[in-house]
Design a protein around this nucleic acid. Structure first.
Lengths: 206, 206, 206, 206
DNA sequence: CATGAATGAGTCTTCATTCAT
DNA sequence: TATGAATGAAGACTCATTCAT
């Protein structure tokens, strides 16, 4: 039996591509550089992916897909909507905090991509939105959260703020002026976020 | 006279480029198409701009610069921080609501661009941040807003949410799944935003 | 006014391409070599032709188109079908005898091409067939030629033989074994061909 | 046994390649597709053939070689040159009529190939020419055929016409315009051919 | 200033072939 | 011998930019 198309190779291409996309942006990224960083020949990339586009899409759908799976798993451990939201928040931040390059690609390249690879690239994001929406809706049904707002709007807003938080964190390193004036620790952001949930979402706040 | 004609050409290039960037994204945008849409020859573009990059940077700095100027002008009319923030919010939304293509370019291309044209493209954004920060700081000094949060953090968060709001609105048209499930009117978003300021920022909310 | 896309450049690309196609065959022909032989940059080719395919198709349709036009013009000078056929024969041979590279491309590449560029590449060939068919049909109506054969079959056969004649002539140079054993002058071929018409086509031969 | 298995594999590669070459043309044919159609792995091809070129050459030399052998065998059964020529004609037509894909490859790819694989690919064709030449020469020596024409020229012409006949038949399916206007049955062609021999070659026709 | 033809560097992708298993 | 993953050379084509008119 001959060698199997290896999962390890596939992963190393995705990792390498994430780094290169983060460094140069998708359009400036060269297939050759991705291959070199992955210690393979250029042609090998095309045994695993149809095109450069396909690599980017795969990064989105697989990485965010993994996040979704781990989130679904993790929020099962509690029934408290607040705790669920905290888990979602903390897990997401923690994953991206430990993979800054992925954070960059997700916050910077994903927007561009929705323009062209829309449905494929976006479906895992929509799934993430669904997860959050569900939690909010549960909270509303339990009477914990105010019911006068659309759960989907809340979810969308939360994800937007979360994404923005990560984007600013990512930007810190890149824009000196940003860093000097507006460098905000992720922790600050998370706290503000939780405060927001508390202040803006809870029933008692009315 | 000769100069005025030039200004008009320059503007028509910026307008045309905004449309093309919105439609295809910056990297896929072709100089030829920009020229055609502006009813000029390709070469003419290069009498007004150094490069394609330069066009994009100019769109950012000039359009956002105009916004900044009009915001500074408008917020002078009142002393109330709440009103000032409302003016900032409404003006920004109103401008982009009437120029969807600019809205697209600002929410979708700007992020990518910060990676490469950082200081130039970002400086007008920073100026906008400064404007908001100043208003928040004033509110804090007047005792209207809670002083226990960093005004810059508040400004950054507000701009982030605002940008997110516009992005979602822009996305609506592009992603059917997004639209069907998560289409949120700009008005809804603005209201939520104002509520957020009220709930989360005001001293009384504690 | 700026330079016009020049007809001369277009022609020189077609000429250069004909040479390169003749030398290496269509598939091995390199855009760069075509450009160099035409003293232009590679990119310039693509200002005149959509693709390499397009160049080949253009060679066929334009060169054969020119032949068709000159044939139609020439056969108008006489009413005698025999003379008309002789004109067609002599003109075609004469043109290709003076442009061996075109002869090669027409006899060697045209077949392959019909597989992929069918209708476009073949339409000028069909027009040539139509011209011959018409002459034969006239001959039949005048009672000069036997009427018991389909004029189209005769035309097709004649063109086939003509093409074969030229192909063998072209082959002569390329295949030593062919040349040593089977090298046949074009003149011999033409004579045999005319004899064929006389023997096989004329009414009197029955 | 091991050897027989190999011969079968070799044959199945040749058959599969013939199909793929007929469908896509030699240059567009992919080794992978040939392998898949033959139910083997790509690498296996290279245990039987040196290269893709080698496969094509082998198709020519082996298939035409087989034809030659069977022709030599068949024409031994009679002494009449007319009958011999008829046998050659009928056998060739019959073989290719039953293997349209081989007919396509022979009429379409062979020309291209002579450009690069000349001696190898062409030698079996030359052998076929020799067979025909010999028959014609015999006819001339027996006084059956006119002696004032070069037997080699006659052979070459006959083969050319035969090839043309098959090519037109093959084209019929591919070019709608061709079919509608010029579709000629092989039988018609053969009859015309035999008539040609009779009219143009026989001594009595003078 | 306007024009648009010419330029040619730059890169993705293909695919015949190899070779370790 | 069979396998099929890996290889990497090769080349068509694009398009921002230039510059002669």
């Amino acid at each position: 039996m001959a060698k199997q198309k290896s999962v390890a190779t596939r992963e190393s291409i995705l990792d390498s591509a994430t780094k290169v996309f983060a460094k140069t942006g998708f359009y400036r990224a060269k297939a050759l550089e991705i291959a070199q960083k992955a210690n393979i020949a250029v042609g090998t990339i095309y045994n695993y992916f149809k095109s450069k586009d396909d690599i980017l899409i795969s990064i989105f759908s697989e990485r965010i897909g993994e996040l979704n799976r781990s989130l679904r798993e993790a929020i099962r451990k509690t029934d408290d909507p607040d705790e669920k939201l905290a888990i979602i928040l903390d897990s997401t931040i923690s994953i991206l905090e430990n993979d800054r390059e992925l954070a960059e690609v997700v916050t910077i390249e994903l927007r561009q991509s929705t323009k062209f690879f829309s449905s494929t690239a976006i479906s895992s994001v929509i799934e993430l939105l669904d997860i959050i929406t569900e939690v909010v809706r549960e909270g509303q049904q339990r009477g914990a959260y105010r019911a006068d707002v659309d759960a989907r709007v809340v979810a969308l807003t939360m994800l937007g703020i979360l994404e923005n938080l990560i984007h600013v964190w990512v930007l810190g390193d890149k824009i000196p002026e940003m860093k000097s004036k507006y460098d905000i620790s992720l922790q600050n952001g998370i706290d503000a976020f939780k405060q927001l949930i508390k202040d803006g979402l809870h029933r008692e706040s009315e």
